[in-house]
Simulated scan of single mutants.
Amino acid sequence: MKKILFLSMLVFASSSIFAQGNIDVTNVYFTDQNSQAIENDELTPGDTVILWFSWDNNLTSALQIGDSLTFGWSIDGVDQGRLILASLNQTVAVGGSVNAFLRTQYMLPTSGDFTICCWPMYNPYTPNTDPQVGRFCNEDFVIEVPGPPALIDELQAAYSSSIHVNNGTLAFESNGFTQVSIYDLQGRLVLNSSTSEGMLQLPEMQRGTFIIRLMDEDGIRSSKIRLGN
């Protein structure tokens, strides 16, 4: 099933640290329909989500009620057109911050990682002609394809917070010989190994989210962890 994003526009202002020269996009993220934040690696095909982006007014003058702003955005380097805020509903002081969400439709890939970038374009005071100025990219979005139900049930039943990965080394609490299995989110086995040292040096892996399954004499433990460069 392909995934559709529904995006709409609201604006809220607050204060932030002063800097001169531009409107700067500072974040791109998702929420659900109840405005609850969604982790970048918890997006699943078929979800209806809202894309938010945050920006700071780092111009040398305040933005006024009625001012029009335009932003550009892209997904995996492909330009998605313009995000237009036709009329501000309140003043945004120099150094002020704004969170905005925009309504449109976009068909996401059914699996894999993707990057969304957003950058300022038009404002009434200092229009920006360089898409690299004020630009922010979030490279950590993941479309999660659920694996086989038995594997997902096992993950939920045997979740352990003691499994960690640091600089390519898997570390965990060990009680002797441990069988280590790593699955992608479609339930495919990508690594099968063993260790008796409570750690395992992982090979270079494609960036993504994986299920780590440990089995020793005490039973089975699992965790979902981001791996790769």
Rank of each mutant, 00 (worst) to 15 (best):
M199P: 01
G147I: 04
T195D: 07
G134V: 08
V190C: 02
V165E: 01
I152Y: 04
G134N: 14
N138Y: 12
V180N: 03
S193E: 03
D153S: 06
D130M: 05
A171W: 07
E154V: 11
N175W: 09
I143K: 02
L108Y: 03
M121S: 00
Y125T: 00
S161M: 05
L151Q: 04
E154H: 09
Q186L: 02
F101M: 07
C118R: 07
P146W: 06
D130L: 05
S160P: 05
S111C: 08
W119Q: 05
L102E: 11
A158M: 08
L191S: 04
P131N: 08
L108V: 08
S160D: 04
S181A: 03
N175D: 10
V145R: 02
L189M: 10
D140F: 12
R135D: 08
D153L: 11
N167C: 14
A157T: 06
R188K: 09
P149F: 02
A150S: 12
Y106I: 09
G168C: 10
A158K: 00
M121R: 00
D140N: 04
R103L: 11
L102V: 07
G198T: 05
T126Q: 12
P149L: 03
V145K: 12
G168R: 15
M199A: 03
N166S: 10
T115L: 05
P127Q: 11
C117G: 15
L191E: 01
Q156P: 01
V142M: 07
F177K: 10
S193Q: 06
S181H: 07
I152H: 13
Y122F: 15
Q156N: 06
T169I: 15
L191I: 06
R135M: 08
I116L: 09
D184P: 06
W119C: 05
M121H: 00
T178W: 01
V190D: 13
D184M: 12
A171Q: 07
A158F: 01
L151D: 03
F114P: 00
T115A: 12
H164Q: 14
I152T: 09
L170R: 02
S194K: 00
E154A: 15
Y183R: 05
N166I: 13
I143P: 03
A158W: 00
G198R: 04
A157G: 04
Y122L: 04
G176I: 09
Q156K: 11
G168M: 04
T178H: 09
F172H: 02
F136L: 09
G198Y: 12
Y183Q: 14
T169N: 09
N166A: 11
N123F: 00
P109A: 12
Y183H: 15
L102G: 10
I163R: 04
N123E: 00
V145L: 14
C137Q: 15
S174I: 08
M107H: 05
I143W: 14
G134F: 15
I152L: 02
V165C: 01
A171E: 14
S174F: 10
V142N: 07
G198H: 06
Y106S: 08
S181I: 04
N123K: 01
C117N: 13
L151A: 10
R135I: 11
T195H: 05
L185G: 13
R188W: 13
Q132F: 13
T110L: 09
